[in-house]
Design a protein around this nucleic acid. Sequence first.
DNA 1: GTCCATATATCCGGAAGCGAGTAACCCATG
DNA 2: CATGGGTTACTCGCTTCCGGATATATGGAC
Lengths: 213, 213
Amino acid sequence: MARYRRSNPLALAVLAQLWERPQHPYEVATTLRERHKDTSVKLNYGSLYTVVDSLEQHGFIEALEARREGGRPERTVYGLTEDGREELYSWLRDLIGQPVKEYPRFEAGVSLIGIIEPDEVVVLLRRRAELLRQEIDALGGTTEMLMEMGLPALSWIELSYRTAITRAELEWVEQLVTAIENDAIDGIEQWREWHSGDAPPGSIVSEKFSKKK
Amino acid sequence: MARYRRSNPLALAVLAQLWERPQHPYEVATTLRERHKDTSVKLNYGSLYTVVDSLEQHGFIEALEARREGGRPERTVYGLTEDGREELYSWLRDLIGQPVKEYPRFEAGVSLIGIIEPDEVVVLLRRRAELLRQEIDALGGTTEMLMEMGLPALSWIELSYRTAITRAELEWVEQLVTAIENDAIDGIEQWREWHSGDAPPGSIVSEKFSKKK
DNA sequence: GTCCATATATCCGGAAGCGAGTAACCCATG
DNA sequence: CATGGGTTACTCGCTTCCGGATATATGGAC
């Protein structure tokens, strides 16, 4: 049997659900929705069943019963195996104990930001900042709601994380806007030149990099 | 022709490279490596050629020549089309102007953190914090190196972003460690109970959520 | 009693992703 | 001049992902 690759975090969420009690896939999905876990783990039905099959093939979960109630589609209830429990713990420990390189879309965008002219970048970043502020507000709202429902902080701790990271991004964006506006960025002259004249795009960076060798 | 889905940021990086000048895929890859862009955009050869094919099919790039030098494998040089240039700008504007929901692995881990017992979580978070500190140091080192090479700040601006975000995560982690150690988290009593006794795992959270309905 | 929207539960086929493999060249070393 | 390790430039085939499609049941409106 091929080694398990731990690619899709949805598989982790499935293990976590079955750790509480046996369930059928659709039930797992609705529970995750109910608990807002689908904001931390990408959930879509297409992937769900692929992931469940894969977990079964690796012996982490097993079909307990395939019951047909009324004329509804048959539903298969899965339970966690001992191997599955161990995989759950081990995976979770890894996830928490060791940072892994991620590739957020915005970072990709930032790394190519020179392709857009500075003045437009400022406009775009302002828009982003505004949307980030809205997001932070929304996160605060959700947090309050859950608090009023009497849920322990532990059950929505990921909201606190998300808020902290979003705040940091907002600050960085605001700071960059200021820097561009005040021409306080090294290389801004060339940046403006590329876009105002007929200099071949990106040539300066290319040359500088070539020198390196 | 199916609408282009902008799924893989590697496609954006390819467009950006061809925007400077026509190149063959392998050359694109090495240039991205040389400029450290492969830390912001996931690059592997398997995906590279899939992505290039897809871009060609959508008319964003076109094959200019397929030259065979010596007995080496044939290499196809691609150039950006007008549509491709527009797609590049439009995609980049979107990426910078609008935040999109992302699903970092750590957030998934955090959302399920209750499955691990509090004392072990502290150990794990300490380890993570240490590794994050090392990462921040490494980022600083790279930045200095590039600065000494005389490259304008604009060309490694993504390092500044990554540093800011990593710092924020580190602060959050450190703060959580302190909170757990001082029992300053709402719900920590239940958390400790689940793991010290025979209470059915996760039951409290489940019940509370069920109440909601 | 029947119509329609919504909920339940899963399946499917095409698209995308990815690591390992291939095959020729290049250059240094003994 | 044989050998072997690195570089160049892809190619292949297996997995995974994911957006609909499907098929039935339930419940309320009229």
